[in-house]
Design a protein around this nucleic acid. Structure first.
Lengths: 138, 138
DNA sequence: GTTCCTGCAAAAGCTTTGCAGAAGA
DNA sequence: TCTTCTGCAAAGCTTTTGCAGGAAC
């Protein structure tokens, strides 16, 4: 368990390292699946005896403010979160519904930012058919 | 009023051209401000005597299915809609909150789509400082 | 000891659903 | 006429808020 390290990271970002925040942060880092708040809640509820939804939201918002995690606008229904704060793209397959991460060249991404604008964070999001589903639809 | 044309466009896409759908479609085409469902509701309520929220949502979903409008994941709080279905980028200024559209080269956008994936639609979204707010921040 | 956080309950806000009446083909 | 859509009310779901007890420093 690298929870000692996680606690240090939280402290370094001015976030008081409570057990709950460490657990949420750890979950996001070890599950690169863009979970929703509810998904995290369900997972951590099994692991820990008490863990309220409020705490999930509190922890997520705190981590967001500290820029330790990212919110990704993938689903219109619910907010999704991502422990990967590097610039990277997302692809949602309209057939199987799965969401894929893919690396992007930060320079190529920011080259698309219009001149005069100071882009701090860039998100790119494709929908279409993934390599597995594309042949089935041909 | 080009509502005759709008009705024809709806029909051509297999959408029955009711007054309400034409009104929603017309609003989106003439207001390139990525309105939320509630914004559209408030605007059309003044214009038409009765126009329920349910109808706004019904019309928007119908237009979405017909690919006549786009849903843009700009705000985590509410779904925003866009009558501009060309590939284009969005920029949200973290200072003034305004959302800007900018054109992008479709080829450059799709060049970022990973190989093997068939991207049907691409969205790019930056957050940062707009040309007006950037000088004020430093 | 003081400050900040957690967690329960309740509320708020956006969106969907069920169903009767109306509009469109 | 027959299908499809509208609109009201109500519910569903995610997220936020208020406040008392508890953990962290």
């Amino acid at each position: 368990m690298a929870n000692q390290n996680l606690a240090a990271v939280l402290s370094a970002h001015g976030v008081r390292p409570t057990q709950q925040r460490i657990a949420v942060f750890d979950y996001l880092l070890t599950h690169p699946t863009h979970p929703s708040a509810d998904t995290i809640y369900n997972a951590l509820s099994k692991q820990y005896p008490v863990f309220s939804r409020t705490t999930i939201y509190n922890s997520l918002n705190t981590l967001l403010e500290a820029k330790l995690i990212r919110a990704v606008n993938i689903s219109p229904d619910e907010q999704r979160f991502d422990g990967n704060i590097r610039d990277h793209g997302h692809f949602r397959c309209v057939s199987c519904g799965e969401i894929f991460d893919f690396d992007i060249d930060p320079a190529a991404l920011h080259a698309l930012c219009p001149s005069g604008f100071q882009g701090e964070q860039g998100d790119i999001f494709f929908t279409g058919l993934c390599p597995h589903c594309a042949p089935l639809r041909h």
